[in-house]
Design a protein around this nucleic acid. Structure first.
Lengths: 329, 329
DNA sequence: TCTTAATGTGTAATCGATTCCACATTGCGA
DNA sequence: TCGCAATGTGGAATCGATTACACATTAAGA
């Protein structure tokens, strides 16, 4: 692969001039410009980003740390980010932790060594060690979905969403409402959504039977199992069940259908996530659109802001949500 | 951020020795080793990949060009690749074309300028210009899902899958079989799957009514519309419909259910893709598991092979598929 | 005791770009 | 005609690492 030196030699100018030509900085006469253009055309020369980055300390790369890339949520997030970042000439370097905390730490270092211009962190459970690492990070960093002190955040309104959904059930006359959650170590999905549900129940003075509180692990099967547990172990069967993700809700619906419960007459169901199929299920699933793409975009905008303007002001952005009331309630 | 020079100074050795320490190359006495270790520990020094890459011509980055990152197929592919690549210390640099051909070309250059060690291309429609560009590429390159001459490929057996599904319908006694495809500019999904269907129909001497042949655009809604067209414009309504993707099939099922057709008694349905929900639909959708993750893994293995061994042998790998016969047929 | 090999460490060139200077040329007003 | 600004080009240091080579020290074998 050709280098700037060879181009310079071939065009009979100094590499300084070639550099000026490439970056449109400083004066280059029309004559010389044409010569360089021609040589570059002929050789198909492409400047090395690495050499460039070494000097300029700019890589035009944003590191994105994800807990997984298999979910719709993740793809949407990345799609949103990419839309904004690509427009400014940035690319995404992927770091997939597979929910492994050590990897999270490892990747922070790796991204640092690759001198990414910024890091977007979509973490699910935030360890102290990680927070610590981030706080002493010089690279701009934005977190999505979990509140982390000291850096900018794009947040979902998990607590109020949970309250809103529970409240929706209550407004429809339900008093016995079940809950399918996930591990509370996941602050946003596990803890806050549960708290929202519990608080809303308490506000209406509705008791919550322990058997109504089940946990899944983010997939359809565990939603099925959770629903099974609810229906088969509770004294009083609930007439509505709130699942903290669409997948869990889908699993729950599957159980209900298999056991000839009518949705929503016997048991109403709601999820969170607005997955693509949610609208096309039978009945269509009531859910909440978190606007992940928007979250991705906002995070990208925040990070670019920080990079460009040296705008170190920390921003906490809480996104709005859209409750999609559909056939399942 | 500290550099190797500062570390060297602080540890009172030359930067050469520090480098040897870092890379475990050459001799470093226990005494010196400890001093360096200590300094690195204290400063939190992390070597710059850029400087390193500039010298070594190795970036440990694989560029991945995707038509979109919103689909399950894409996420699975990337997940598969990442699993293999991460294990060898490689990271993924994302290049999302959004189905834009010019972007495809642009990204090839961009990845080249970033000197990625290899490129994995998941293209849907391959322009001549692109093939041309690839052929004169010095960087190892692997294509997934579309056959491109001159480089290694990981292929799905689109043609035979289509024949197998059509044949399945026929074996169940169906003679009137509809088809929901996509644009044929997409060779694999559009052209080959259609050809497989048509050939199998012809083999059994079953006529195909033009109205049975509909096109969608990869989403649920267009599957719905396509099914609507089939049922509302054909003279003889088909008793089975083969959709080339699960999403199209889901849309088709939705139409059928809404219009009180029983699946599979009135109309049988099959898709391709083995999307996560396919199993949990009602009835569960007959589909074909393309093993995208495996495809991603294989592509990653191929690329690493080429990088490591300078093994320039071109390999064409056609993956096996699993036909998942379920309730919808 | 002297060679020779093994063990440690440092010097300096190098990778491919950017950028601060210095220097050369030209044109224009005084 | 001179001086100065505008225009155009090149020299050389620099970014942060790797690596060939030279050199110094030590240990082992004859």
């Amino acid at each position: 692969m050709a280098t700037i030196n060879e181009i310079a030699k071939m065009a009979k100018v100094s590499r300084t001039t070639v550099s000026r030509f490439l970056n449109n900085s400083g004066y280059v006469s029309e004559d010389v410009r044409k010569r360089i253009e021609k040589v570059i055309e002929e050789t198909g020369y492409i400047p090395s980003q690495y050499a460039k980055s070494l000097r300029t300390k700019q890589t035009k790369v944003i590191g994105v740390i994800l807990p997984t890339i298999r979910t719709e949520t993740s793809s949407r997030l990345v799609a949103g980010m990419d839309e904004i970042l690509a427009a400014s000439g940035y690319q995404i370097l992927l770091a997939n932790t597979n929910l492994n905390k050590e990897k999270e730490m490892e990747y922070m270092d790796l991204l640092k060594s690759r001198q990414v211009d910024g890091i977007i962190l979509a973490a699910t459970n935030v360890s102290d060690a990680l927070v610590n690492k981030i706080s002493q990070l010089v690279i701009p960093c934005v977190a999505i979905g979990q509140e982390i002190d000291g850096i900018s955040n794009v947040l979902y309104d998990d607590y109020h969403v949970a309250r809103a959904l529970t409240s929706l059930f209550i407004s429809k006359g339900h008093q016995h409402i079940g809950f399918i959650g996930v591990a509370e170590s996941d602050r946003s999905v596990g803890l806050l959504r549960k708290k929202g549900y519990l608080d809303e129940m308490e506000k209406s003075d509705f008791a919550v039977e322990p058997a109504w509180l089940q946990k899944g692990i983010f997939d359809i099967d565990s939603g099925y199992t959770a629903m099974k547990n609810i229906m088969e172990t509770s004294n009083q069967k609930p007439t509505a069940v709130f699942a903290v993700t669409d997948r869990l809700a889908i699993g729950a619906m599957k159980y209900l259908k298999e056991h000839n419960y009518n949705i929503p007459d016997d048991v109403a169901i709601a999820g969170i996530g607005a997955s693509e199929v949610s609208m096309h299920l039978d009945p269509s699933l009531t859910t909440v659109d978190y606007q992940n793409e928007k979250a991705g975009k906002e995070a990208a905008i925040l990070i670019l802001d920080q990079i460009k303007k040296e705008n170190k002001a920390i921003k906490k952005l809480t996104l709005t949500y859209r409750l999609l009331e559909r056939g399942s309630v």
